[in-house]
């Protein structure tokens, strides 16, 4: 499988957008080279504002730009962009419903050697808990580019998180993408595996292993965590009778929680959640950390076994 960089596709999409729409602006915070918004700045020097290490400022400035008619992207690493700025996003972006597009790279544990201070495993929960926010978690590089275009066309605030490390490309540029939709990556009847972000590739890998063992798994790519595509998820719950979720995020208030809320209210089925277990990460290479913190296809398979056992199949 091809391994590609979400940041590179993000940056390329921003430039495409900037060429189409002169109202697109980007605010960055001393990480513009690393997350490649600098490419946009080279092309459109007066439309990239690097405000230094002042992320609260970055968010409010983006909100001011949006209030004056700009499509304002605010971009940096997730831990600075949404954890350090929670109340600024809440008051200046979500409460106002202004079209600020917060796109953060370096989300989750795969930030790697920088360690726990830089590995934000709580952002999906933080952002999905705020009214008016839309939360996108693209599965791979091509889908990250689609998120850029979809977010720009979306009327309100958007948070989109992606990862530092290159991951397998699991979608193609021709695949459809719309905010609010989950996509069936592989059909199956015995169990559902619902993943987001880089874990979608692990879900597909797990489904393959299960297939070899005679278990037919449906794999969902839940690229929009909020608003959640409840019809696709509930259909999967009804059709397969069990769900395993997988995310590069804490299991406390992320994708697994969102899906369990929807399922518990409408059609409860046995569930298992693969994700970071309410702990901080540590330094290490991305793939070592995924192994140590249980973000693997093997953990997904284990979850499927548990769910199927509880269901008595």
């Amino acid at each position: 499988m091809k391994m590609e960089s979400q940041r590179s596709y993000f940056a390329k999409a921003l430039i495409e957008l900037g060429e189409k729409d002169p109202n697109v602006v980007v605010v960055g915070a001393d990480t513009t080279e690393s997350i490649k918004t600098l490419d946009f700045g080279k092309k459109f020097p007066d439309r990239l504002f690097n405000v230094g290490i002042s992320e609260q400022n970055m968010i409010s400035i983006a909100a001011g730009l949006a209030a004056a008619g700009k499509v304002a992207f605010a971009s940096t690493y997730a831990v600075f962009g949404v954890a350090h700025t929670y109340n600024i996003i809440r008051q200046n972006v979500a409460y106002t419903k202004l079209p600020v597009k917060i796109f953060c790279s370096h989300a989750g544990i795969t930030v790697g050697p920088d360690g726990a201070t830089h590995q934000l495993n709580e952002d999906i929960g933080l952002m999905r808990g705020i009214p008016n926010m839309t939360v996108l978690v693209p599965a791979d590089a091509p889908q990250t580019a689609k998120c850029v275009h979809a977010a720009a066309a979306w009327p309100g605030p958007v948070y989109c998180r992606f990862s530092r490390t290159n991951f397998p490309t699991v979608t193609s540029v021709e695949d459809p993408f719309a905010i609010g939709k989950s996509y069936v990556m592989r059909d199956g009847d015995d169990v559902t595996i619902a993943g987001c972000g880089i874990m979608v590739s692990r879900c597909l890998q797990a489904a393959e292993e299960l297939d070899a063992a005679g278990v037919s798994a449906r794999v969902l790519n839940v690229a929009t965590v909020k608003p959640l595509d409840t019809s696709t998820i509930l259909k999967a719950a009804r059709d397969t009778g069990g769900i395993v979720t997988a995310e590069e995020h804490t299991i406390v208030h992320g994708l697994g929680s969102a899906i369990s809320e929807a399922v518990a209210l409408e059609h409860p089925v046995p569930m298992a959640m693969v994700g970071v277990q309410d702990v901080f990460g540590e330094s290490g290479e991305a793939f070592e950390l995924m192994e140590k913190y249980g973000l693997t296809a093997a953990k997904v398979v284990e979850g499927v076994r548990r769910v199927m056992k509880r269901r008595g199949r």
Binding site: S60, G64, L65, A67, G69, Q91
Partner: peptide, 30 residues
Amino acid sequence: YGTTPGVENAAGAEGQGLSFGVGLGLAARL
């Protein structure tokens, strides 16, 4: 913001307004 005619920003948590104003000023200049 968006409810009261004429109100240009949401405020209450202190210290956010000047940054918001910087964003507006940058937009006017652009």
